[in-house]
Design a protein around this nucleic acid. Sequence first.
DNA 1: ATCCATTTTTAGAATTATTCCATTTTTGTT
DNA 2: AACAAAAATGGAATAATTCTAAAAATGGAT
Lengths: 140, 140
Amino acid sequence: MDAIKNMVKERLELHGIKPSMQRMAVMEYLMTHRTHPTAEMIFADLYPEMPTLSKATVYNTLNLLVERGVVRLITIEEKNARFDACMDPHIHFRCRQCGAILDVNVEAHWIPAMPSGVSVEMSETYCIGYCAECNSKRVN
Amino acid sequence: MDAIKNMVKERLELHGIKPSMQRMAVMEYLMTHRTHPTAEMIFADLYPEMPTLSKATVYNTLNLLVERGVVRLITIEEKNARFDACMDPHIHFRCRQCGAILDVNVEAHWIPAMPSGVSVEMSETYCIGYCAECNSKRVN
DNA sequence: ATCCATTTTTAGAATTATTCCATTTTTGTT
DNA sequence: AACAAAAATGGAATAATTCTAAAAATGGAT
């Protein structure tokens, strides 16, 4: 019936994760909110509809999803970890002024030549500067 | 006399930072320890020789150095901020097993095309995987 | 259906990196 | 020496995340 819920379920099972209600909820949230939310944001938004949801479960689930490579952990902001369910190649940009985190699509991710013997499992690139809107308001 | 202390002093003054004892100590530490230390590590190592040093000062100094673009803040590890006084283009690699953080030199840093209006002040790339040593010990 | 083992969730306490705050010390200038 | 401004200090406060021990849910096997 619900196409999204099916995709969520499949994606979890594909990575060997049992699709419990809570895990489905967190995963669905990430797939439908491309806002790079923090654990706190996810919890706050899910809580009204799942009043017995625990913050620990949100953290447990996010950690599991990251470990299994289902979602990306973004450390572009020192304070909070942020999460992204989009695994297509893209990088992140954070505006120094308004704090917005934007996706920037790239054809493929840049992985420089590594010293021999080193194997790379994943790489992340992020940029920091001023977004178009904040730039236009800036005094020079 | 002390060539390093002079470099440290110059580098601070070049960025408009008054070279106090404490700031010199932190900056010298970063320039002579290419280990991407945490604030805690810097404090712990400096403390024996500067018993009145405060952790707050180490944090204040590191924040100032990062703001002024004298050192790089590295967020490759979720738990702690790490710092790097080397501003030459290079990226960081973290070994998932032993936790070592290595520099990987690159000719120039990769900055993908940004949406129009966006200005980029800095960018960071990091990779995570297994270092040569840990790789050789891994079971397949 | 029922029992049991395993997995998952839960609430709250604990941990810990970092920031904040009010005071003291240091520095530089008249 | 006196004073204002800047920097450093110690300890309390904050807040994100993890830990812990108990409760709930799940999934066979009988």
